[in-house]
Structures are given as C-alpha cells and as structure tokens.
Design a protein around this nucleic acid. Structure first.
Length: 423
RNA sequence: GGUGAGGUGGGUGAGUGGCUUAAACCAACAGUUUGCUAAACUGUCGUACUGGAAACGGUACCGGGGGUUCGAAUCCCCCCCUCACCGCCA
C-alpha cells in the first residue's frame, strides 16, 4: 500500500510513475485526495464532539461526588444529544475512511524510475547474459522424457495419488532435490543469511501483510475449516514475522533464508507452459528475504542479484538477468530482476528466480517500522528473491547435461548428491 | 476434543465504574559523576490519525467485535488466541 502522506504531497508524481505500470491512476488518486479532505473534516467534527462528551462526563462525575445530583442530571441532557450526534458522525467518518482505504489498496506499488516502459514480457530489458548454450547430442530429449527414462520423477504416479502438478521424485531424482536444497541453504548461510523453517500454512492477516490477499485469493490453496492458507512462497511467513514490529536501525540488514514447499493453484494455466516441471502446484524453493533501511535497499537489491547469479554460475547453467518492464511487474514490486536459465532441449528460457525490492509497500501494509537516527518512526523496506526455485533448475540441469550415457551433475552439486551421473 | 485459568505498553505486571493523563519494576536512550569499567543519581521513554509555522493541543487504542452507562481496561454478550491438566497422537 502506498503511503497516504506521500500521495498527498506528490500526487502528480505518483500518477506519472504508475503510468509506467500501465495504470491510469489519475481518477483514483483524485478520488483519494478528495475523500481525504472530507474524511479529515468528518474526523474533526467527530473529535470535537467526543472532546465535549469527555469533558461533560468528567464534570458530571465531579458533581455527583459533590452531591449536586440535580446539576449533574441537567448536564446529562446535553450528553444525550451529543451521543445521538456521535453515532452519525462516527458512521460518516468510518465510511469515508474505509472508502479511502479501499481505493488506496487498489493502487499498485510505484515502479522505480529506472524501470522500462512496456506492456508485456516482450518489453523486458535483458541486463546480463552469461554462460554458453550447450550443443546437445542427437538423441537429446526434454526433461519429462528424461525423467521417465531414468525413473527419477514420476508424473503419472502424482496424477494417481494427488493430481496433475504434484509429481513424485524417486531415487536419484529425490536425492537431487535434497542435494539442491542443501546446496542453496549452505550457500545462503555462507553469505550471511539466517536460516528459518517457517510454517507452511498461514492465517488471513499474513496473507494481507505481504499482499497475496485480497488480489490473489484464488491462487492459494485454502483450508476452509481452519481458515488457513497454504503458502505460495516462504516469503509470506518469513516476512510476516515482522508484522507490527518496530525495529531499531541497528537491526539492519535482516537477512533470512528459508526452504519451503510452495503451493500454488495456478488456475488458468495450460499447454506446454505446464508440461513436466515447467509449472507445478507444489514445488520446493529456497527464498531469501531482507529487511533494510530505506536508504540502503537498492544496494541490497544489487547484492541479492549478485548472490543469485553466483548460484547459477556454480551450477554451470547459462542464464540471463531480465529487468522487468512496468507492464510485467507484480502489483507489489518497485523493481524486479528475473533470472532465466536456458533449457536446452525445450529451447526456451525458464524463469527460476525473481528478485524484488518492495520498498515500503509491504511494510506499510504490515506496519513494519523502525526508529531512525532522529527517533522518528518510519517504514522499513522489504526485499526478497528466490535462491532458488527447484523444478526449473532441475529441468535445465537434466536437459543441458544429458549425454548418451546419462546425465552429468555439475561438480559443485555432485558434492551434495553423492553421485556425478544419473544413469 | 474435555475442564480450568488467562490475554494490559519493548518485557514483567498492578489496576472490579470517575482520583488512570494506565502505577511500579526491568530493559532502552540521554545526561551527571568517573582515569576506564561498573554502580549510583537525574531526565526521557507507546502507536496512529488529526489541528498548528512552531510552541503546544485534540481523538482513538488495555486480544477482536458488539452492548449497558453521563462516563468502561474494569460490567454484560459473541468471537479469536494463549497457558495448564486430561484424552488422543508423530
């Protein structure tokens, strides 16, 4: 949620910047400011009324104590009037307040000034490419065929036991998963992150805190009887640790890493996009989350970007970094880098990480604040990134490293899997 | 699931209708003292909205929501959560 104070003083700038996300915010902004004036008027009226009531109540109390019941009762008439008025004023204020809030919630985060204009993924800016695309041997096949050939990932079995998008990992496939998780966690810890194992299920307030609710309601699995949601990413529980918290500026940077299963309904997805490991309902991901001082958050974003690049380098995967254009960015992000690896048999780029700075957008919803150098309470900045999401990494590893004799494991990973070939 | 006890500021915790502007202690911060450290002493010490150039005010908030009352942390109703014991269970 954007900060009302900022919006009030920089309405034109907010509108301009939101236009980069292809949002025509002009009328909403105007409405918000309009309501703001009326809301404050209503608040003033209401509070004047309450102040009078409070003063009278005090007087009445004193009169009763002094034994002047008649005078006290006389004053009660006025308080009765005020009370009737108070109800109407309160309703008016509440109505305006909620209306304003609802409008404010509709506005996405402002993109950073460096974000390119554009409508879709086509307009994203490739800011970095690295590694070379492998030449595959003649018999090379996509990862879903490799999965079956070596019996390491069983999609059919998943269909039987659960449904589409819930595969079984078996034998060396399961060990590869475990190796990747440990590899990612160990690297994060070495880079100064603090490991956390969060709950995989969250309540409604947490969903609102990080912005999954109300907009992406249908994307999460929901447990009706307990009113709990399965997490779509560890970002949700790990960031919500800090909901309603006021930190000290010496606490920065907070660097957390969490491995978790992630659950996504992915309603509306279909076709080759969802084939094999390309898009699952349940997958594994290691997530890094940072909380930073507003002045340092972009430095931190670059640090996180470099960190993720290092992981892909160690895994010997060709990748590129893409700066998302306004039209392709998420609702909550101010600047996002996507990491895509080359999946050689599918001949396509697969997104394996998304590293974002949310600035104060999530913090505002969550009331995550800190005391600055002058003792002033301000909103923190939050950032997060996948480091990394497993399935597409596995897809690329399998496809890119396949040979007639088996699938080679990159050296850094072989130390974790305990084998250097899948056969 | 059953029974009972609870939810008060960063923490502990007092507060059964007006003297609460939420005590006291701890922690934190600033200062005094000090060769340094410690201790002691003094002071500051919730959040949000809002009025004001500022000084300084106003209102709300004691788990959440409703109600009673001139007046509610306090009384009543509903909900949520926590703890203890029992049952069940990895």
């Amino acid at each position: 949620m954007l900060e009302l104070n900022y919006l009030r003083e920089n309405a034109a700038e907010v509108t301009e910047r939101l236009a980069i996300k292809n949002i025509d915010a002009e009328s909403i902004v105007k409405q918000i400011l309009d309501i703001d004036i009326r809301r404050r008027e209503a608040q003033h009226e209401l509070e004047t009324n309450q102040a009078e009531s409070n003063a009278l109540a005090k007087q009445i109390g004193e009169l009763f104590k002094a034994g002047k019941a008649a005078e006290a009762n006389a004053l009660k008439e006025r308080t009765t009037e005020l009370k009737a008025l108070a109800k109407a004023l309160q309703e008016k204020f509440d109505g305006l307040f909620e209306e304003q809030n609802a409008l404010l919630l509709q506005l996405p985060n402002m993109p950073h000034p460096s974000v390119p204009r554009g409508k879709s993924a086509e307009d994203n800016e490739i800011v970095h490419s690295e590694g070379s695309m492998p030449e595959l041997y003649d018999g090379a096949v996509p990862h879903w065929d490799l999965a079956a050939k070596y019996d390491i990932i069983d999609f059919e079995l998943g269909n039987k036991v659960t449904g589409a998008g819930f595969p079984f990992y078996k034998g060396q496939g399961a060990r590869l998963q475990r190796a990747l998780i440990n590899f990612f966690l160990d690297n994060a810890i070495a880079a100064g992150y603090y490991e956390i194992q969060p709950p995989l299920v969250i309540n409604e307030a947490s969903g609102y805190g990080t912005g999954q609710l109300p907009d992406k309601d249908g994307q999460m699995y929901y447990c009706e009887i307990d009113k709990l949601y399965l997490i779509p990413t560890a970002e949700v529980p790990v960031t919500n640790i800090y909901r309603d918290v006021i930190m000290k500026s010496t606490d920065f940077p907070v660097k957390n890493v969490a491995y978790s299963n992630c659950f996504r309904r992915e309603a509306g997805s279909y076709g080759k996009d969802v084939r094999g490991l390309n898009r699952l309902h349940q997958f594994d991901k290691v997530e890094i989350v940072q909380i930073q001082h507003p002045d340092k958050s972009y430095e931190t974003l670059e640090e996180m970007r470099d960190y993720v690049a290092g992981l892909l380098r160690k895994l010997e995967l060709p990748f590129r970094i893409v700066k998302l254009c306004g039209g392709d960015m998420s609702f909550t992000s101010a600047l996002t880098y996507d990491f895509e690896v080359w999946s050689a048999a599918q001949q396509r780029w697969l997104e394996v990480s998304s590293v974002s700075n949310f600035e104060s957008f999530q913090a505002n919803r969550m009331k995550l604040r800190f005391k600055d150098e002058n003792g002033k309470t301000r909103l923190c900045h939050t950032l997060n990134g996948s480091a990394l999401a497993l399935p597409r990494i596995v897809a690329a590893l399998l496809e890119n490293n396949q040979t007639a004799d088996g699938i080679r494991m990159p050296a850094a990973l072989a130390a974790y899997t305990g084998f250097d070939f899948i056969r």
